[in-house]
Write a protein that binds this DNA or RNA. Structure first.
Length: 293
DNA sequence: TCCATTTGACCTTT
DNA sequence: AAAGGTCAAATGGA
């Protein structure tokens, strides 16, 4: 852990925090404007709040990392990897949090009895399934289809929620380095066309995240959408709730990967073929704002 | 024949 | 030792 004083890197982190807070302010401004718009989209409002929460959580994480004595909200400090058990959807204690490089957690529901969450923009290959202690449903393990051909390290875990079998908890690990449009790629969903306003705002939001990701690592681009074999047959009523990764693992957590996945979720749910919305689950984390429930 | 899924065994971490 | 995560052989479908 590096010190802030007399350290250029620490100053850079503070500058990053300031710039992110400015971006949060801008997002809040967009949210306020959108709330008063006649064609206000609840989906977009939720997307904006998701990003606001992610950015604030991340900034607080920086502060907590460099100023251990600084007061922080319980949601940000206790929502570190070691605090995941506070979330009701994780009823069991995780054994490998210390080494896991979490990128994002998403709660997805697929209506109509789908066997899994909807298309998340990537193709996955299932490589394992495990019964989890204390969980009613097994956890499925997926890795990117292009792992062998392109060495893509991305993996995800999908587990049906205990409380609501229609909900799936998806945890993404690693970043996609593959190009889904290649030989193994699939269809590319069209861009949002039913709500141009929302589309433009999502694009601006996406652009902001891309710039932001430049601070965190080399892979700052938004993942293109592709096909996913998971529950590809039924996407009706899909809901997703991006959950920003807790701030406790900043020293090794790939920040850009988190944002990339969140943006991927944003773009995935904005596909016009899916009737979907972002959803802040009040039980998903005790610090998640609950403005739109 | 190729590719994805299933599933028991093995490995790693706590 | 227990539990989560991954491997790889077996299996089935296109």
């Amino acid at each position: 852990m590096e010190s802030v004083e007399g350290n250029g890197t620490g100053r850079g982190n503070l500058q990053l925090v300031v710039s992110e807070l400015c971006r949060v302010q801008e997002l809040v401004r967009q949210l306020e404007l959108h709330l008063h718009a006649p064609d206000a989209s609840i989906d977009l409002c939720r997307a904006l709040t998701a990003e606001i929460f992610a950015l604030t959580d991340r900034s607080i994480g920086f502060v907590a990392a460099h100023f251990p004595d600084a007061p922080t909200t319980p949601s940000s400090t206790s929502s570190s990897l070691s605090g995941v058990s506070d979330q009701p959807f994780r009823t069991n204690t995780k054994k490998r949090k210390a080494t896991a490089r979490w990128t994002s957690q998403v709660r997805v529901s697929a209506a109509g009895g789908a066997e899994g969450p909807g298309d998340d923009g990537h193709s996955w290959r299932k490589y394992g399934q495990k019964d989890i202690l204390g969980a009613k449903h097994p956890r499925a393990y997926y890795r990117c289809t292009h792992r062998n051909s392109q060495g893509c390290p991305a993996t995800k875990q999908v587990q049906r929620a205990d409380q609501d079998p229609a909900l799936f908890d998806v945890v993404y690990h690693g970043q996609h380095t593959c190009r889904p449009t290649g030989s193994g790629g699939g269809r590319r969903p069209p861009t949002n066309q039913h709500n141009p306003h929302a589309e433009s705002l999502l694009q601006s939001l996406r652009a902001g995240l891309t710039v932001d990701a430049d601070h965190g690592g080399p892979n700052a681009s938004v993942s293109p959408l592709g096909a996913s074999p998971v529950a590809s047959g039924s996407n009706g009523g899909l809901t997703m709730s991006p959950y920003p990764v807790p701030a406790g693992a900043y020293t090794e957590w790939p920040l850009d990967g988190d944002l990339q996945e969140v943006v991927s979720a944003l773009t995935a749910v904005s596909a016009p073929s899916m009737d979907c919305l972002f959803e802040f689950d009040p039980t998903f984390g005790d610090g998640v704002p609950n403005f739109f429930m």
